[in-house]
Design a protein around this nucleic acid. Structure first.
Lengths: 220, 220
DNA sequence: GTTATGCCAAATGTATACATTTAGTCAAGA
DNA sequence: TCTTGACTAAATGTATACATTTGGCATAAC
């Protein structure tokens, strides 16, 4: 694996999981020595992160990790809503019903999985990832997939806000199941509507979590 | 201006306007000497073009300019449709009516402009660009704007197919005017529907032009 | 006391030498 | 004749030295 890929993957993980907090300055010399690569591959990694919108030029002096504000959550969902509705529509038309029927069956066991402690929750996240991959495979559209992947990068950052909200996790599983069943039935408009419902609920829960978090910060 | 920005801008223009045809291999040493920059900034430029989806790794030996097939046109419109409908909806809710009323007035003169020869057509293209910028300003959503800009890069490549189709150009101006009027009226659903109509017509014209072009190529 | 200007230090931007990987070709063996 | 392997040449990947830009601080003038 290339050194620049390693640096990119490491920095990406650290930004998404919050190790590198918003506002952190990433200086080239500092990060290159920390990650054990020279400046050239590091610069390549920083360039990719910049295109991803995860870091921005800070007045010519270093690159800063971008913030994720309440407004950002609203903006991200304004993009997520049309993209995922379109994806649901197209997958309902093109997806292999048997494959999605199998995924639906797994989602019917999601509640039990979520109740099964940390390992079960990890398994549930893994199930969601497999669903995303099945959707991408069925889409067969590199332009749409690229847009979805860029979006998912930012979603991964805000998803941390909902961490630990078991009730919401179970609700989301039920909502997702409705979408998958519409896909199995080959019903694009139902799939789109079910996606709209799911995303509206998801946005609501995320906004509430973000507001609570903001209030806590102010109290500090 | 940075050397890497120059290299990026030059290569981008050449790929979009067809100077660098699909399939062309861009080798680092060759391009760096041609563009008069060293390999380091050139590599940065190539990395950005790769993220844009305009070039791809060709089996480890150089980067090749991507092709734009009929299937690509279909795929691009599967992304364009939901993105621009969402943009139209949001701008109808947020846009400054006076600003868009002024643009509408300009579009009412579009037919005369298009009949005014090459200079008039250039002016019409310029008008479209100002509309796009007004839309981006009104959106005030960096995630959506980023997705739209990435899309427009690919649209610019396929737009060349319609070059010289005066009849289609005039139709497009009329369809665009309907969208703008819906924005001025603050009617999001009408703006979305008008966008759907416009894009369907646009896709149809583009596909026909592409098919004619393909047939000509086969005859050669 | 405040503002403007010039210097300094540290950051990014660039060029280039060197390392490593890879595709293509040629030859030898089955 | 076909396949397999090694060798070679040329490409990309990396490190580092050097150039340039820029932000911050100190000093001086108003």
């Amino acid at each position: 694996m290339k050194a620049s890929d390693n640096a990119y993957a490491t920095l990406l993980t650290e930004i998404v999981d919050g190790t590198l907090e918003p506002g952190t300055i990433l200086a080239e010399v500092e990060q290159s020595s920390r990650l054990g690569v020279s400046r050239t591959p590091l610069r390549e990694a920083l360039g990719r992160l910049r295109k991803d919108g995860l870091i921005v030029r800070q007045s010519g002096r270093g690159l800063a990790v971008t913030d994720v504000s309440i407004d950002d959550i609203l903006a991200i969902y304004e993009l997520r809503q049309p993209l995922e509705q379109q994806a649901a529509r197209l997958v309902a038309l093109r997806g292999n019903p048997a494959l999605f029927a199998a995924l639906a069956e797994e989602f019917r066991g999601a509640e039990a999985l979520i109740d099964g402690g940390p390992a079960g929750i990890r398994a549930y996240y893994d199930l969601n990832e497999r669903l995303d991959r099945a959707i991408e495979d069925a889409l067969d559209n590199r332009y749409l997939i690229t847009a979805l992947k860029a979006l998912h990068l930012h979603l991964a950052r805000i998803r941390r806000l909902n961490r630990g909200n078991i009730v919401r996790l179970k609700q989301a599983a039920v909502e997702t199941l409705v979408i998958i069943e519409a896909i199995v039935d080959g019903d694009p408009e139902l799939a789109a509507s079910a996606t709209q419902v799911h995303l509206r609920q998801s946005q609501k829960a995320t906004l509430e979590a973000a507001k609570i978090r903001n209030n806590k910060k102010e109290l500090q």
